[in-house]
């Protein structure tokens, strides 16, 4: 199997992923608030979108024909903010204002105050519908931009996700790509004990297929696979694509991985140092 990314590009994307994860941990630690597990699972897809896939330009953040991205799982905003900062939408230093008064970096994305955000989200299940509206608008107005949206597997318990799934198929939105950040955990979820928790849906591919979507399943932490999936989505006509990205909640820091306990916990100073060491070592 030949890789689509050059060694150089792959290295660049991996470096951006590490930089983004370090900034996520730094920002939550600095703010003393925020989500951490979900943002860490989302990082690689977000990095690939902004450094490999999307037709966007931080210098012209509102360009009419730019590709659109909606973070439907809005509570992972901090991951998106780190990627937007690295991309140049605003100074990296501004991440230190996250969650503080008058900051453009709200706990959940606010499209009116931060350049680069295409939709305000936070209440789960809504972003995917807005993305359907953007893709439908592109079709109606004969624009060739593409619309991307990331949803969570926990978020998919919202019925609105499936309302959107139906309408996207009805209007044949092949200009829409939804990425499911399938980290298999949510804030608390289901389980027999406090530590053994999970999202009960284990067959998202079958569900989305049944709804009529083009389904691609990948390792959501592998830039080659992410890239291939985006390329494959572009070749499909007449229906929308969902990329089921299998991910690890808390990815990159051993003690944050695969546990709901780090859904929105703030690292202590010691945990912060340990996390940065692990990320710099490039686990």
């Amino acid at each position: 199997m030949s890789n689509l990314l050059s060694e150089e590009k792959l290295q660049l994307l991996n470096e951006k992923s590490i930089e983004s994860r370090k900034l996520v941990v730094h920002t939550v630690h600095h703010a003393g608030a925020g989500h951490i597990g979900g943002p860490m699972s989302a990082v690689d897809v977000l990095v690939n979108l902004y450094f490999n896939e999307l037709n966007v330009n931080p210098e012209d953040a509102r360009a009419e024909n730019r590709d659109r991205f909606v973070l439907s799982k809005g509570h992972s905003a901090v991951a998106l903010y780190t990627v937007l900062a690295i991309k140049g939408y605003f100074p990296i230093k501004e991440l230190d204002t996250f969650d503080s008064m008058d900051s453009r970096l709200q706990a959940h994305p606010d499209m009116n105050i931060l350049p680069g955000l295409d939709m305000s989200t936070g209440s789960l299940g809504q972003g995917i519908s807005a993305a359907v509206g953007m893709a439908l608008g592109a079709k109606l107005k004969n624009k060739d931009f593409r619309t991307y949206c990331m949803i969570g597997d926990g978020e998919s318990q919202e019925g609105q996700v499936w309302e959107a799934a139906d309408v996207a198929v009805k209007y044949g939105l092949d200009n829409l790509v939804v990425i499911l950040d399938n980290n298999k955990l949510q804030q608390f979820g289901w389980g027999e004990s406090f530590d053994e928790r999970e999202v009960p849906v284990t067959n998202p591919c079958e569900r989305w297929q049944a709804f009529g979507w083009n389904v691609i399943e990948i390792d959501g932490h592998n830039h080659n696979e992410i890239t291939k999936a985006f390329n494959a989505a572009r070749t499909v006509s007449g229906k929308p694509t969902i990329i089921v990205a299998n991910t690890v909640k808390g990815k990159g820091v051993s003690f944050m991985e695969n546990t709901h306990r780090w859904h929105s916990r703030v690292p202590t100073d010691e945990e912060f140092d340990h996390a940065v060491q692990e990320l710099e070592a490039g686990v």
Binding site: V132, G137, A138, L140, Q160, E163, V167
Partner: peptide
């Protein structure tokens, strides 16, 4: 599906 309808409308506005 009223909830989806209102969010789709929000997305549509961003395309003019």
């Amino acid at each position: 599906a009223e909830q989806n309808m209102m969010s789709v409308a929000a997305g549509l506005t961003t395309t003019g």
